[in-house]
């Protein structure tokens, strides 16, 4: 249950404003792809086009194509709801549903799909929590509110919630930026394990993190202030961090700007 994402000539707009320009890339299945780049370079915006979350913002639209194993996500008649069930997302700040218990947070997606059998629900909950490396910590208090957990645990709960609906791809938008170093390590560890089953895309501000967790890295940058963000280059993570082909990439990863 892991599919390949192909993006070609993608432009992202908010109303008349062009936020990201001309991105073409391939995201390999069962791998971790990191998006790095300075703030405001459009990496998060671009990430949100991969499951059509950008459409939630009024005026958000794209030109170009995104395909999931050659299935066009933007073809007429494709329901964004179906896209988001296939391509899950984890956000910058942990956002468990405050009115729900740990158990119900994990099962929220399944419940939306109308799954009612207790056995299926229980089985999915345990599998998802185990996959998110949280089961041992919460198995005795599944009825407690999701927001009673620590920040790092909440983020893993959100990951469990995202994978409970068995997506093909998991998008993570700076999943560790609101967490302490120990929780960050736990999430990074988890990302490394998730790629066995999912196509994982991680946006990160932290270059060490990109170097630690990803197989390939895409570097985004603004051509100039006020210009749309663009993909500068994408390659194996090792190559990007040792011998990038663009000068601007080298400047960024060596800390000369950004």
């Amino acid at each position: 249950m892991s599919k390949r994402v192909d993006v070609s000539d993608l432009h992202v707009y908010y109303g008349d404003f062009k936020a990201v320009e001309d991105v073409t890339m391939t995201i390999a299945p069962r791998s971790v792809t990191a998006f790095i780049g300075p703030s405001g370079c459009g990496k998060s915006t671009f990430l949100r086009t991969l499951n059509r979350m950008h459409e939630v913002t009024p005026g958000g639209r794209v030109e170009g194509t995104v395909t999931l194993d050659s299935e066009d996500l933007y073809a007429p008649g494709v329901d964004p709801v179906a896209v988001r069930r296939t391509i899950g997302m984890v956000f910058q700040r942990p956002n468990p549903f405050p009115t729900m218990s740990i158990r119900n947070n994990v099962l929220a997606g399944l419940r939306l799909n109308g799954v009612k059998e207790k056995a299926t629900l229980d089985e999915t909950m345990e599998r998802s929590l185990r996959a998110a490396n949280l089961w041992e910590e919460v198995k005795d208090r599944l009825g407690k509110p999701g927001v009673s957990l620590s920040g790092g645990q909440q983020q893993r709960l959100c990951i469990a919630r995202a994978i409970a609906v068995e997506p093909q791809v998991l998008l993570m938008d700076e999943p560790c930026s609101a967490l302490d170093p120990i929780s960050t390590l736990a999430i990074e560890d988890l990302i490394g394990r998730l790629k066995a089953d999912y196509t994982v895309v991680v946006v990160t501000h932290n270059m060490q993190q990109a170097a630690r967790v990803s197989d390939s890295t895409a570097f985004f940058n603004l051509a100039a202030t006020g210009k749309p963000g663009r993909l500068v280059e994408m390659n194996d993570t090792a190559t990007i961090f040792s011998t990038p082909s663009q000068r601007v990439t080298e400047d960024y990863i060596s800390g000369r700007f950004g």
Binding site: N51, V56, V81, A82, R84, G88, M89, F91, R93, L112
Partner: peptide, 21 residues
């Protein structure tokens, strides 16, 4: 909060399901 609304949409909620969740 927008964060929870996005969370609901991201697990494949329709607009009404998002409102309910």
């Amino acid at each position: 909060p927008a964060a929870q609304q996005e969370a609901a949409l991201a697990i494949g909620a329709t607009k009404w399901e998002m409102v309910r969740t």
